[in-house]
Each structure stands twice: as structure tokens, then as C-alpha cells.
Nucleic acid binder design. Structure first.
Lengths: 211, 211
DNA sequence: TTCATTATTAGAGTGGCTCTAATGATAGAC
DNA sequence: GTCTATCATTAGAGCCACTCTAATAATGAA
């Protein structure tokens, strides 16, 4: 996104360390499962001290979910870029489909995404942690909605954000399940598009018609 | 609810132990804050071995959130009892208001609920854990909706459940904030009723009109 | 070269949680 | 009342995520 003034050697080394830890962790998690890998092992594989892991990642889970920061930033950008053109809901939908593409845009990306998805699908406890992170996205949505609709009732705005976050998360989970099962990229994206249409129509029109 | 055939002495003692642990924990948490109480201290205060705590509660958090099992059971009952009379959404709304009353039905209940609410409001990390438990309620809602609407698309049904769970959780959070601040019971319930109307209308009619 | 900054490190410690093998109280059969 | 099976509870050892503190060493700026 933003290309600051050439990061120095120190910063580049730091980034390399961070990535080395991430790569080592994902490989080990993929091989033996999240629960059967200790942080000490990750550190050893990445050739750093155990304490160093915590200077880059707040926790073991954070290692798995580290990409969520970028994902959320992209949500913010997607909504702001389209301000004045389309509604927030439509922008969120675009962002979601864009992320699905992004996660499969190269063979390398596909590999990583499959690993990530398989990790979550194999480990319910780990998946449950992801629910906790929905809250971060929900708060971001509150912020984005509040900017666009400053006169809305704060409670209803927060409730709306919660619904959008929950619904998109459900769609993402189905997407990840398809991905984890090894479905072809085109198929995965096609299904995701259909579900996106369905779930955003549900969000816009409400549950009253059906339930 | 269900009064089985007189629990024996052993079962009664077990219950007493369980409650002693809970009471001790809540008192210590209230006094010094969740983070500044160790499980060993809880065990000591309850006069049991540390390991015993884990035979009754799966984790330290579970100690705080233990009532959710009963809350969820009441949701199931509320929906099933009104089957054929009102829709699932309306039943969920009734349940929510009923729970608000239940949590303030006696001075003792009010005291406990305030402690609980204050605990969550004072500790963001602890509050965030509650988000993880939404998922349990969501799965229960999926089950309840699926019974009532067996022909619905599973994905849309799950998305709907996610929205309902998220929206009610938001309402509950506002309720707890009021409670934690020491607002009078009548006022708390009145506000909760207004918000319940608002949020369920939003769920039924969708976000399209406003956002 | 000199000095401040800071990423990394070792090492010691805290505390949640698990596991195993006892212990002791209760329940039911006789 | 006695015997036996069940099971809640226990001590104790141990694992591991995570924290803190005080060094170390590499980088960046003067």
C-alpha cells in the first residue's frame, strides 16, 4: 500500500525475522497440527530465541491469525474508496469477494490459504478463537458506518455492524471449508459469489420474510 | 425446570462444592479483578484442591461464564414452548426479555448480575472471550431454526442464526452496561425493552432501508 | 570513531491446565 | 451391618504459553 522512504537495513532484518517465524510456524502447524507444536519448537525452527517470537506476535494464536490486520485494512480502504458511489453494505460485499480472489491469486497464495483453512477446519478450538476476532472487524464496521451515517442511532448502528460481521464470517467459513477440501479455485470463487449474493440480500431485506 | 428423583447425598455435596467454588471466585474477582486472582487462590478460598476446580469448570473463564449453559437451555425451552404459536424470532425476543427479568428478579440476583456485568465492563480481554461463546448460541439457533424450517437453505439458515446471535449479543451488552453503572432495575428493563423492539425490527426488516 | 537506539537474547519465573495414582466417602447389594 | 463398586476429591509432578529483567550486539546518526 503505502511505500514509505526505503526502510533501513534494521527494519528489513526485522521483517525477515518476522517472516521466518511465520513460515516456520505454518510449516510445523501444517505438519503436526497446532496443538502439537510448542512455541519453543517454532522458535528453534525459525532460529530465534523463544522470547523473540513474542516481540513479533502477541500470542500463539496471533501467529495463525496475523493476516487479519491486513484484511481489516483492506476493508477500511474498500469502503472509503467507494464512498459516495455505493453504500457501505455493497462495498463490504465487494471487499469480501476481493479478499476471496486475493487469497487465491497465485499458487503460493492458494497453498497458504489452504493450509490456513485446513488448520481451522481441523481444530475446532482454534476455529472458535476466530470468533473472538470478529469483534475487531465489528468495531471497524461501527467506525465505518458511523462516518457514513453520523445521524444513525448508535445502538442500531452497532447492532447492524454485528449482523454484517457475523454474516460475512459465516460466508467466509463456507469459503474456507471449500478451500480446505481442495476444491478448484474457480469453483471456490463461483460458490463464494453465489453465497455473497444470497447473504447480502438477506442482510438488506431482513429475516422477516423467511423465518 | 426438571426435578429428577431427589439427588442423593453425594450429588448434593458435589453441587455444594461447585457453588462454593463459584461464590469464592466471584467474590475474589469482584474484590481484586479477574486478572489479579489465581486459580490457586480461588481453590484456597473455596477450601478445595486446585485440581478440584477443574472437575467443575473447564477453565478460569468458564467460571465467569458458567451461567451461559442455563441461559442457552432457557432459549431452547422458550422457542420450543411457543412452537406453532409464534415465529422463532419472536420467541427469541421473548426469551431475551425474560432473561433480563430473570437476572434482576431478586436483590440477590441483581447483586450477582451487577458483579458479572462490572467484571466484563472492567476487563476488555474478558469481554472479548464472551464473543467466543456467541458461537455456542449461534449453533443452538441453527438447531432450533432447522427444526422449524427444515427446507431452508443451510447456509442462509446459518447466516440468519449468526445475525440473530450477534444482534442479541449487542443488546445484551447494552443491558449489561446499564446494569454495571448501577441504573435502577425498572429503568434498565424499560430501556432493554425498547432496544429489543428496535433490534428485532431491524432483524426482520433488514438493513437495506437505512444503511 | 562515538554514542544512542533497538532488535535480540538468556534466564528465571508465573500461572493455567493436565495427568496419574492414591484416598476416602457414598450407594447399593446382600 | 458388611462388603464392594463407584466416584468426588486430592497430592504432586509436569507442560507450556507468556512475562520480565538485565545483558548483548548490531544498526544508524553525528
Amino acid at each position: 500500500m503505502e511505500t514509505g522512504p526505503e526502510p533501513g537495513l534494521r527494519e528489513r532484518k526485522k521483517q525477515r525475522t518476522r517472516e521466518a517465524i511465520f513460515e516456520a510456524a505454518m510449516e510445523l502447524f501444517d505438519e503436526r497440527g497446532y496443538d502439537h507444536v510448542t512455541l519453543a519448537e517454532v522458535a528453534r525452527a525459525a532460529d530465534v530465541a523463544p522470547a523473540t517470537v513474542f516481540t513479533h506476535y502477541a500470542s500463539k494464536e496471533d501467529l495463525v491469525y496475523s493476516m487479519r490486520h491486513e484484511v481489516n485494512e483492506r476493508l477500511r480502504t474498500a469502503v472509503n474508496e467507494r464512498a459516495g458511489q455505493i453504500g457501505v453494505l455493497a462495498a463490504v460485499k465487494e471487499w469480501m469477494l476481493g479478499m476471496h480472489e486475493y487469497f487465491t491469486e497465485s499458487p503460493e497464495a492458494v497453498r497458504r490459504s489452504r493450509t490456513f483453512s485446513r488448520l481451522l477446519n481441523d481444530n475446532p478450538a482454534l476455529w472458535n478463537r476466530s470468533v473472538g476476532f470478529i469483534h475487531e472487524r465489528q468495531m471497524l464496521l461501527v467506525e465505518l458506518l458511523a462516518e457514513r451515517y453520523p445521524d444513525a442511532d448508535p445502538f442500531l448502528l452497532e447492532a447492524a455492524a454485528a449482523q454484517v460481521a457475523a454474516a460475512t464470517q459465516t460466508a467466509v467459513r463456507y469459503y474456507q471449508r471449500d478451500l480446505a477440501q481442495g476444491m478448484a479455485r474457480e469453483e471456490v470463487l463461483a460458490r463464494a459469489a453465489v453465497r455473497a449474493d444470497q447473504v447480502f440480500e438477506q442482510l438488506e431485506r431482513g429475516l422477516g420474510d423467511v423465518f
